[in-house]
Design a binder for these strands. Structure first.
Length: 493
RNA sequence: GGCGCUAUCGUCUAGGGGUUAGGACGGAAGAUUCUCAAUCUUCAAACCCGGGUUCGAUUCCCGGUAGCGCUACCA
């Protein structure tokens, strides 16, 4: 039984959680997963998700990154209820907290210069000692410190870690975690320019925003005892901490650009549908109850989600599994829902599907979607359905069209189709099969060759469905032009 | 280096003192013959190592190893 019991849904208080990205970069996969877990938790308990932008690193934070992060969250369908709050606009809160800490005797001014500290750290490391701040300025009397400070001497404010003992907390994922206080250093609360550092601003904000559960990456575990000490020094009740394992690349090192796309938006560009990405992310480090399927919509995700089922070990980002989720979602989506997403792909690929009516577009998408792995396919390997300028896959040509006789027969067959009054699946198939018998060739050879002639691909839906989708005119023209495909191949290879 | 966390198929994971160690992705084979990236069927694939506790450890404990994290006047 953990000392911090899991949040009690029966209690009147609804949980308040937050996602607090730092706008020094785009929304990356790890951040998105953290945001997702917070959102799922808030929705599950009918609580509140607060968005807070941690932009106290003035040098590296930009408005563009904030914009990108918000867009990423929106794309994923993660909606926050409060905020965004900007830390740079809440400086008074942090300074007041710092002042309080100073008055309580939990903080003191430090006059050590940056270079001086670096030198000492380097020396300590060289001598094999832990490079911790030794509390040099801790002994300076309060009056003396105030005098020097008021005289204009630059000073940072440091937190005074209690001597001896240990600090522990009960993590909803990792259970009890304990650190000896001797391992913690007197960290900086206020820089000498008066701006707060991370620890101070997070804790002051989380107290002020009445955050009940802090769900964040496991890389913050080591920071937590310092923050626990801050809560105590400030006399505030502790929230429940829940640290979620990190996401790794295939080589089991922390996911980074080396492994490919780490930006959430890059996956949109790759033709991933947001629900698929969200579903995939949810299952990275969290497992639904036994017997649950893995394809889970937002309602199911929210209903099933719980902190207790979060894993304690890091998870490798498996691109292949993401693609599987994507195919499942594309297949399950209605053509109506797919169409606007596909139109974006066409725009990007410079495809204008022409004068087709909406009904044709929808039925063609339905025909194609069981074989789609990405939205990109609708502008890529399915291009021939929506544009007349397409390139043939050389491997498909090689496999099904290298026989000149097949090509000649296809051209001849095109004449028959041209004369066919009723261009339906049944009729086109009947004509082709009779033609095959007449010419004493296997129908399959004609079918496969025709598929390549019509779509440029060796893989496509049933040929006669393809013909009907394309219509008589385009079918006839493409079959007649089959030799041109050969030319394209020989020049391409 | 110090401190912390973690360790089940290639990957995500279930399980838990006695199990044929379960599922999903991926892989392999077969079926379908109108292609396959579709569909169906089948198969291969794991408890990090060493001690201890126990009648019995993959499961509990300790140690080792490995991986990851933190170790800033970054967040």
């Amino acid at each position: 039984m953990p000392a911090n019991p899991p949040f009690d849904a029966q209690s009147s208080a609804k949980p308040r959680v937050r996602f607090a990205p730092s706008p020094t970069g785009y929304l990356h996969v790890g951040g998105a997963r953290t945001a997702l877990f917070n959102w799922l938790f808030a929705r599950h308990f009918d609580g509140t998700l607060v968005l807070r932008i941690e932009d106290t690193d003035l040098q590296r934070s930009t408005a563009e990154m904030v914009e990108g992060i918000l867009r990423g969250l929106q794309w994923l369908g993660i909606h926050w209820d409060e905020g965004p709050y900007y830390q740079t606009k809440r400086m008074d809160l942090y300074r007041a907290a710092a002042q309080k800490l100073l008055e309580f005797g939990a903080a003191y001014y430090c006059f050590c210069g940056k270079e001086e500290l670096e030198k000492r750290r380097a020396a300590a490391t060289a001598e094999g000692r832990p490079p911790r701040y030794e509390g040099t300025c801790r002994g300076i009397s309060r009056e003396e410190a105030l005098r020097r400070k008021n005289a204009g001497e630059p000073a940072a404010l440091r937190f005074a870690i209690p001597e001896g003992g240990s600090t522990s907390f009960d993590d909803a994922v990792f259970q009890k975690v304990e650190f000896a206080n001797s391992e913690l250093e007197d960290f900086v609360l206020l820089r000498s320019d008066g701006n707060p550092t991370y620890h101070l601003s997070v804790v002051a904000d989380d107290i002020d925003l009445r955050i009940t559960h802090i769900i964040r990456g496991a890389d913050h575990i080591s920071n937590t005892p310092k923050q626990v000490l801050l809560y105590k020094a400030l006399g505030a009740p502790l929230p429940v901490f829940a640290h979620v394992p990190l996401i790794l690349g295939p080589d089991k090192t922390r996911l980074s650009k080396r492994h490919g796309a780490t930006s959430v938006m890059a996956y949109r560009e790759e033709g991933i549908v947001p629900e698929a990405f969200r579903n995939f992310l949810a299952l990275l480090g969290w497992t639904p109850p036994e017997g649950s399927p893995e394809i889970l919509n937002d309602t199911e995700l929210i209903r099933l989600f719980g902190l207790d089922a979060i894993s304690r070990s890091n998870a490798v980002f498996d691109r292949g599994k993401l693609d599987w989720f994507n195919t499942e979602y594309i297949r399950a989506y209605s053509a109506e829902r797919l169409l606007p997403l596909i139109e974006e792909e066409w725009k990007r690929a410079g495809i204008n599907p022409g004068p087709h009516d909406r009904g044709w577009l929808l039925s063609t998408i339905d025909l194609l979607k069981p074989r789609a792995r990405s939205l990109k396919d609708f502008a890529g390997s399915f291009r021939a359905f929506f544009a007349d300028n397409f390139e043939a896959d050389p491997a498909a040509v090689e496999k099904f069209l290298k026989d000149a006789n097949v090509r000649h027969l296809l051209i001849e067959l095109a004449q028959r189709y041209a004369a066919l009054p009723e261009f339906t699946e049944q009729e086109t198939e009947r004509v082709l099969r009779e033609f095959a018998v007449e010419k004493n060739v296997k129908a399959g050879a004609l079918i496969n060759g025709a598929r390549v002639a019509l779509t440029g691909q060796g893989v496509a839906p049933s040929l006669f469905a393809v013909m009907c989708s394309l219509g008589k005119d385009r079918t006839v023209v493409r079959m007649k032009n089959v030799e041109q495909l050969m030319g394209a191949v020989s020049t391409a290879t």
